[in-house]
């Protein structure tokens, strides 16, 4: 080959190669966020056709909004609102029935540490109010009336309450379910690599372009810092903690994770992270394990198929299930 031509060809190849590598970093990625179910939801999806990705991500957001319409206690026509008002059996959508079915299983296996009918308790604590206060003992007792096993029962799509005053709240599991629905729509839409993040409740589709997603587990006592990093793919990761939604009275922290058996915020953990095949399961279990505490919570996670988890106890000591050994990276 003629020398000058050879040199020119080499130069062009070198430049093209370098710039392809440089520009390829951001190619084929769609990242969008939207406020749904009272939290910030972000979906990140990778693929060769960003137009198609954008369309699929829009469908995933619409699906999450549809789930909010079914399960929000603040929407008059939702299944949850109608169920709370019901004086008799109430028929619910298949989606709501699915969530209640899983919630009842978690309630049963956690021996009542998880309860879908504690809407009144959540209302009287009103943690997100501008001036939250510790409710009077009598009000707490009243709000606990009817809670526990058998408070809510499901047959097909028919839901019954043992006490007409019971208020249903699916908040501890519905967000995870909505994340799962979005994940499913992304998958059905042909997306192979994506993440759905609803305020820290995550479900991952595939890996992050050839390497695992790296999930930072937030430190429960050091704002802005991570406790550990979990490399992860094709699973859900959900954390519950006492560090964001709380108020303090006389040095005592009152947070949003109320124990349905005592009527007061649980105090056996600072944070719980659950890794599970689906986000609804991870979401529900993160709450249940937080309320159960380290000993029973760890046992529940070990016994549940496909579930792993990490617990930070009140002293900041970290406990984890055997399946996480060697998986976590510590700073």
């Amino acid at each position: 080959m003629n020398r000058p031509i050879l040199v020119i060809v080499l130069m062009v190849l070198l430049i093209a190669g370098a710039w392809w590598r440089l520009s390829g970093q951001e190619e084929g990625q769609v990242r969008r966020s939207q406020i749904i179910m009272g939290t910030l939801v972000e979906i990140t999806a990778f693929g060769p056709d960003t137009g198609k990705l954008d369309e699929v991500v829009s469908r995933a957001f619409s699906e999450m909004s549809r789930i909010e319409d079914l399960m929000s206690p603040h929407i008059e026509t939702s299944d949850v609102t109608l169920l709370s008002k019901a004086v008799d059996q109430q028929k619910v959508s298949e989606e709501t029935a699915e969530v209640i079915r899983l919630g009842l299983e978690i309630a049963q296996r956690s021996e009542g540490a998880f309860d879908l009918s504690m809407g009144r308790l959540i209302d009287i604590w009103d943690i997100l109010n501008e001036n939250p206060q510790v409710p009077e003992e009598a009000r707490i007792r009243q709000a606990m009336d009817g809670l526990g096993p058998g408070g809510l029962s499901l047959e097909g799509r028919m839901v019954s309450k043992s006490n007409v005053d019971l208020q249903v709240d699916l908040g501890s599991i519905a967000k995870g379910y909505a994340v799962d629905r979005a994940w499913q729509l992304l998958k059905d839409g042909g997306v192979q690599n994506a993440s759905v993040n609803a305020g820290g409740d995550l479900r991952l589709l595939g890996d992050r372009k050839g390497r695992p997603w790296r999930i930072g587990l937030v430190h429960p006592r050091k704002a802005g810092e991570v406790l550990a990093v979990l490399p992860s793919a094709d699973e859900a990761v959900v954390t519950s903690g006492d560090y964001e939604r709380y108020f303090e009275v006389d040095g005592q922290r009152y947070h949003h994770l109320i124990d349905p058996r005592t009527g007061y915020p649980a105090n056996l953990c600072q944070a719980v992270t659950v890794v599970a095949p689906t986000a609804d399961l991870a979401d529900g279990l993160a709450t249940a394990v937080f309320i159960l505490g380290p000993e029973k919570g760890l046992k529940l996670m070990e016994e549940w198929d496909g579930v792993e988890g990490l617990i930070v106890d009140p002293d900041g000591k970290v406990l984890q299930t055997s399946g996480l050994n060697g998986r976590l990276e510590w700073p």
Binding site: D201, L202, G216, L217, V218, V229, V238, E244
Partner: peptide, 14 residues
């Protein structure tokens, strides 16, 4: 924007 160094993690579970 592109960070000076690669992030330790991609997403935060909180």
């Amino acid at each position: 924007g592109t960070p000076d160094v690669e992030n330790d993690y991609d997403l935060i579970s909180r």
